[in-house]
Amino acid sequence: MISKMKHLLAALAISGFVISTPITATAAEPSAATIEEGKKLAFSRSKGNCLACHAIKGGSMPGNIGPALVAMKLRFPDKQKLVDKIWGTPETQTVPNSMMPPFGRHGILTDDEVNTITDYIYTL
């Protein structure tokens, strides 16, 4: 019984570790194809759906719950911080009553998709 409990606790600890591990921003300059792919994900209603809350250049009927996605390099000099924000690491949850879902943490997007979207958002 006790060993079983230990097993369970270890499994929980490991899965907790995996779940809370943030991902690393892509360092290399993304290709035009990656950026285009990121834009598709960002505009897709079932994926990023960034337009639900944010105005984005080229996007129609955006919501106005979050700020417009402009001057992203100025607002996020460190690209990693933007990745973390979209992925949803706990330390990025600083806006009171924020509506922004933790896309990576809750499995709405895969880690690759979070990176691809970030590559696109970072061009705005």
């Binding site: 337009l51 639900a52 809350c53 009927m61 919501g63 106005n64 719950i65 009553n97 509506m99």
Partner: peptide
């Protein structure tokens, strides 16, 4: 908190 704001349209 966000009533009155728009999600898309």
């Amino acid at each position: 908190d966000n009533s009155g704001r728009n999600a898309r349209s």
